[in-house]
Design a protein around this nucleic acid. Structure first.
Length: 188
DNA sequence: GAAAGGATCCGCT
DNA sequence: GCGGATCCTTTCA
């Protein structure tokens, strides 16, 4: 258990990503356990940091332990945690534990499994927008509690990208009902 | 200045 | 299970 968030995130995204599984993320008191993530790094054609710094992705090239929030397909927001060396971990799914009422109100009274089972849905449920881009994960409104130990997890190819699909940098808690999509092969 | 593409979600079949 | 909606960012002329 690393107490310093900056030290925790200042490593390669593919190392940080699986260790985030089981951690608790709260935004203004609303959130839950992380059950699914994906890693991206600058040598990866599918990563936003691959082409180099731009006005949109400049946060990825800044200090670690910050939130990188960007708009996807013009309508959804996606939440990333910035790691060392211009890498990032995309938060894909949560198991909701805090603020269920508020999430249901924002999401239209869906079942718990559907509240945070996807990057765009997750941000809507927690109320995260582009205004949170670049904010520190160590200060309000964010509250991040790292897991004391990792349970079993599964890996697989990442979702929704057209380049470097063969890199298995998707990580999920084994057997969780809150994943955005099931993992091919061993899930139970 | 203009055009193309994208780390997705929702509704319908 | 599949296809459309929707708009911001980047790239090129």
């Amino acid at each position: 258990m690393i107490e310093n968030l900056t030290a925790f995130f200042d490593r390669h995204s593919a190392i940080v990503a699986p260790e985030l599984l089981g951690a608790t993320v709260l935004y203004d008191g609303v959130g839950g356990r992380i059950v699914e993530v994906e890693a991206y790094d600058p040598s990866d054609p599918a990563s936003h940091s691959f082409p180099g710094p731009t006005p949109r992705n400049r946060v990825m090239f800044g200090p670690p332990a910050r939130a990188y929030v960007y708009r996807s397909y013009g309508i959804h927001w996606c939440l990333n945690f910035v790691c060392g060396n211009a890498g990032a971990v995309l938060i894909r799914a949560l198991e909701p534990t805090e603020g269920l009422d508020l999430m249901r109100r924002r999401r239209g009274f869906e079942s718990p499994e559907a509240l945070c089972s996807g990057p765009g849905k997750l941000c809507q449920a927690l109320g995260i927008t582009g205004e949170d881009n670049g904010r520190s994960l160590a200060a309000s409104p964010f509250a991040l509690t790292l897991a004391t130990g990792q349970g079993p997890f599964v890996t697989g190819p990442r979702i929704g990208i057209s380049k470097a699909v063969e890199i298995p940098w998707r990580f999920g808690v084994a057997g969780s009902r809150f994943l955005s999509r099931r993992f091919a092969g061993n899930q139970s």
